[in-house]
Write a protein that binds this DNA or RNA. Sequence first.
DNA 1: CCTAACTCCGTATGCCTTACGGTATTTGGT
DNA 2: ACCAAATACCGTAAGGCATACGGAGTTAGG
Lengths: 254, 254
Amino acid sequence: MENRDVDRTLSLMWRRVLGTPQGSRGPKQRFSVDEVIRAGIAVADEEGLPAFSMRKVADRLGLKLMSIYTYVPSRDELIGLMVDEVMGEPELTPHAGDWRERLTVVARQMWDEFHRHPWLLQVEQSRPWIGPNGSDRWEWQLAAIEGAGFTDLEMDQTITLIGDFTGASARADVAALRTAEQSGITDLEWWEVNAPVLERLMPPAAYPISGRVGTTAGEEYNAVRDSERSFRFGLERILDGLEVLLTSGRRPRS
Amino acid sequence: MENRDVDRTLSLMWRRVLGTPQGSRGPKQRFSVDEVIRAGIAVADEEGLPAFSMRKVADRLGLKLMSIYTYVPSRDELIGLMVDEVMGEPELTPHAGDWRERLTVVARQMWDEFHRHPWLLQVEQSRPWIGPNGSDRWEWQLAAIEGAGFTDLEMDQTITLIGDFTGASARADVAALRTAEQSGITDLEWWEVNAPVLERLMPPAAYPISGRVGTTAGEEYNAVRDSERSFRFGLERILDGLEVLLTSGRRPRS
DNA sequence: CCTAACTCCGTATGCCTTACGGTATTTGGT
DNA sequence: ACCAAATACCGTAAGGCATACGGAGTTAGG
């Protein structure tokens, strides 16, 4: 990636700060970059990232396909801009309560966001775009545990841990929701269709533990999985583990 | 999804158990389903899932594109079969040591696997295929914590937690490795190109905490991120948190 | 008032999956 | 021994995608 591309990318990301460097010669653009980004978000919200295409963005704006490329250099770039745009949606409310409550808010915000914009989980960012909203968010997330007693390194690792885990849980939950919706068949119905076949294929003797655990979980969840509950379980364990780190005594306030 | 499709899907998955129901009339197939699956894995290993195509699988076997469809009903199905095939690669060694060590082995096995077959992280399984190797693995993973004092429900949630977290960490690590390899530019070089631009865009006063933390982390990691280290950090926290759950006293052996 | 710069778009290239129909091959049944 | 059914393999085409390129129309600076 050339230096010029870096500039092009970043100047779109930070267009609020830099202003839009509109050359003044030719005709004015019919839309703004922001409108293109918002149209992109709408398409992705409705159809998911695999079905997201430049043509659909263009159609939504009443432009023809290739005109989109005068606003944005490529599909990947547009997606990067969409991501940072979305990062700016939730208000970064001042932190309150102890660090456990604060981290819970941080995690819950991400969880909600992944449900509002499931395509975020499908973005493959080769190199992370550094945009204004993402940067503000990262600052806010770190602020949640500032002064709790972590070292700088641990702060970085802690937010990464919370984010990674929340993303993975949300991914499972969103996948389950989407499948249920698309196939028009509930988890339970699916199971009822497959169970007889699987019972023939999987002798209980070969799966003593998963058989027992699966039955218990199925009865308790009233479904094959309950991702929301797994998320709460995991988050509590992680918070407990962080507390152990903080109270293990070997730690002078850095 | 019709009942017949369920059968078709599952009978391919469990072909070892069921035998291949080869009608005996026409010409024999030149290859086996297993060879197709292995060719698919080779393609995915080399080029990743986005570049994975039926044509490449066919080319690798010396078949023409459409012939693949006589072995496997669709691309998605083939990917499902590839996943279960890969799940059978590592040996499920008998568990030894305490539950912490065992869970570490479980997590490390997944971590390694995601690095051996990074495309696993790109698979969007709408409904999870239940195959023999995946089932055996799940049984083995649960066995790692059998008798440690968890309830059945907690066993399910614990393995899910370890798996989710490991997947997310591996995703970050693999993405970083791939980017470094593809762009031929290291994290550090990328930073050196971008830093001057970003310094202009991001006034330090607006990012006091992330500035400080980022500097510390950068010096310590000798890179922007160190996913391997974040993985070890997160895993330790999670294991600590699970230990809290087990030793909190409120727990009669279920 | 002319021309440089710019927007918008038509066309083309080269990918992808998969539906469909044709042809060659093998074998069970007669 | 021969025919017909079943099957594997493949050619073609439809309908999708990103994006390179060049042309036509529009605007404003000099």
